[in-house]
Design a protein around this nucleic acid. Structure first.
Lengths: 161, 161
DNA sequence: ATAATCGTTTGTGCTATACCAATGATCTAT
DNA sequence: ATAGATCATTGGTATAGCACAAACGATTAT
């Protein structure tokens, strides 16, 4: 084979595993019914908004690595269901400040409740402790990915934020 | 809110973060040129084959959560580039046993080399130790997802396999 | 006044993928 | 031996998610 004898950093190729696991989760959870007609991408927006507070749409697009035009669409869907509101930014009236509503928070909570079962299946091989670690690492890793002041999943105010 | 105030398990919603991180990685790495004309999905197949040894196509489809017909296509691409070989299973001549070739291993190694830079960006917020932990957890989690006897990323012979 | 920016709409196209149907080879069971 | 199931394969269809481009109104900055 290609040698690589030692043990530590030679095969730390996590990205493939990460993608695979995400894929498993997606397929596992795509059967989740949602009476609201919202799709996963809507919930990632909601998650960011809930955990970060507010954001401009441009900020959302950057943080979520989504195309700005698609953010608009997602927000339209969310707004028509009263899950978010758009206000004009008084400091720059071109901007919209997006905020999650109570309805949105509740919708997200429901979604997460349903997702918990999927998570049990996907991360079933992990012990309770390991899941805790895993979650903490995810937060740290993802935190490094949010360019502006955004901080997803900032439930317990991670230090970095 | 949904109460559950303590600290640990109330917000252990890892799936959203997982998906987000995978998305970031994908977008970050989609610019990776590949002179072989192989796409990420080809490499996940190669990865499984290298780390598990061999597999039937049906096994691959299950393990990778891919539709069997699409597996055929990926294998055709890989075989035409001499990255894998298909042999008939002597025990059941309907089956094909797929095996990665030296060329395939090398192609995968190249790909992983290129991917390492992306990984540095995506997991940049994690320390060396944390990345190690993260990788170990991913292996365990993903290992629980491989139904047959398949065991992806079995570098240091994880106990479960 | 001019140019740049933000959000928005519309449309276009690509990629990945699931899905269905049909076929030949092979295995299993009766 | 016959019948039915299974595996890999091929071909075709359909859909979802996205990126991307072009144009517009409103607003800000120069």
């Amino acid at each position: 084979m290609a040698s690589t004898p030692t043990s530590g950093s030679q095969s730390r190729h996590s990205l493939g595993l990460l993608a695979h696991l995400a894929r498993v989760a997606q397929r596992e959870g795509e059967s989740l019914p949602d009476e609201r007609g919202l799709r996963p991408r809507h919930y990632v927006v909601l998650t960011l908004l809930r955990d970060h507070g507010t954001a401009t749409q441009r900020g959302l697009a950057e943080a979520l690595r989504m195309d700005p035009t698609n953010v608009v669409g997602a927000l339209n869907d969310l707004e028509s269901r009263e899950c978010v509101v758009r206000r004009r930014d008084p400091e720059d009236r071109r901007r919209h400040i997006v905020e999650v509503t109570d309805t949105g928070v509740e919708a997200l909570a429901e979604w997460e409740r349903a997702l918990a079962e999927v998570e049990d299946r996907v991360l079933g091989a992990l012990s309770e402790d390991e899941r805790e670690q895993f979650h903490a690492l995810l937060i740290r890793a993802a935190g490094g990915q949010l360019p502006p002041g955004a901080c997803a999943e900032a439930d317990q105010a991670p230090p970095a934020c």
